[in-house]
Design a protein around this nucleic acid. Structure first.
Lengths: 150, 150
DNA sequence: TTTGATAGTCACTAATCTTGACTATCACCA
DNA sequence: TGGTGATAGTCAAGATTAGTGACTATCAAA
């Protein structure tokens, strides 16, 4: 049996995870396609996915998403230009700014949560609810093992 | 509970898959760090991950990895320059070329398979072998549901 | 009040992806 | 045969995205 066929029959975790990530991004992209006021791409998800309703710091967003401060900075620039977030001074720390979602941004966050939720429901239907819950639990355990206390 | 904390406690599939992919790439990068003859980055994995021992077509590699032909083309250029693959005419189709791993390339493919294998073993130890097998089976089912007959 | 660390930004470079066009070859069908 | 549309791979140019280093303002702690 050839290697590529073997990899198809029993793909490794790298292949599996990249496929799944791809599927999620595609679902988000397609789910947002009609409505998105201004063009924001998959990578803006890095910010929106982790943003708190009452605001987050850029540094936290960078840490949570595993990207550099500068990248987050430009993402915020673009999200701000598109009207999804505002920069506000952080009362706790005058160096910092809070990235706060606007009403439009909150709507978008809710929408993207819904889309991912719907995708998960779909998978839950394929696997059965019980199996899907098991899958997610094991998945969470694995990623926690992978990034210990970061 | 704030959204970011909720996402930490119960991350969605997008977050989980990106974390896992990140972990796999990191393991590969670190595992290869000392030895790699010439610098090849994570994205060359898109080629090496799917390459057959007896050669694959660029188009197939593009399809399997979900990237454009041109990207695969430059990856192949770089892998060829680094001595990991050769381009050979495909006897079946004179338009096509077979991308064939050299001895060095085969070694690298084996090595990266080993690293991913070792990472999986590690996870298997965390979850228990039985759970890990279940996890991978469910994962495979999900990704197959995600990309129907591509 | 001095020292070292941190939050965010600016400017620049390098890496990566995307598009469109082009040649050679193939596969199919009249 | 010969014509037609599709496919394999490449070239070239452009747009996006990521990564580096340096800088200001502020903090935290000795």
């Amino acid at each position: 049996m050839r290697r590529s066929a073997r990899k198809q029959a029993d793909p490794d975790l790298g292949i599996l995870s990249s496929r799944l990530l791809f599927a999620v991004q595609k679902a988000l992209y397609e789910g947002m396609a009609q409505e998105r006021g201004k063009s924001i791409g998959p990578r803006h998800g890095a910010v929106l996915a982790h943003l708190d309703e009452d605001g987050s710091r850029a540094t936290d967003l960078a840490r949570l998403s595993g990207q550099h401060k500068q990248v987050i900075g430009t993402l915020i620039d673009e999200l701000e230009a598109a009207g999804y977030v505002r920069r506000e001074p952080d009362p706790q720390d005058r160096r910092a700014k809070l990235i706060v979602p606007t009403a439009l941004g909150l709507e978008k966050m809710r929408r993207s949560d819904e889309i991912v939720e719907a995708l998960e429901q779909e998978y839950a239907k394929v696997l059965g609810a019980r199996n899907f819950a098991t899958f997610k639990r094991l998945f969470r355990t694995i990623t926690e093992a992978a990034e210990p206390a970061e």
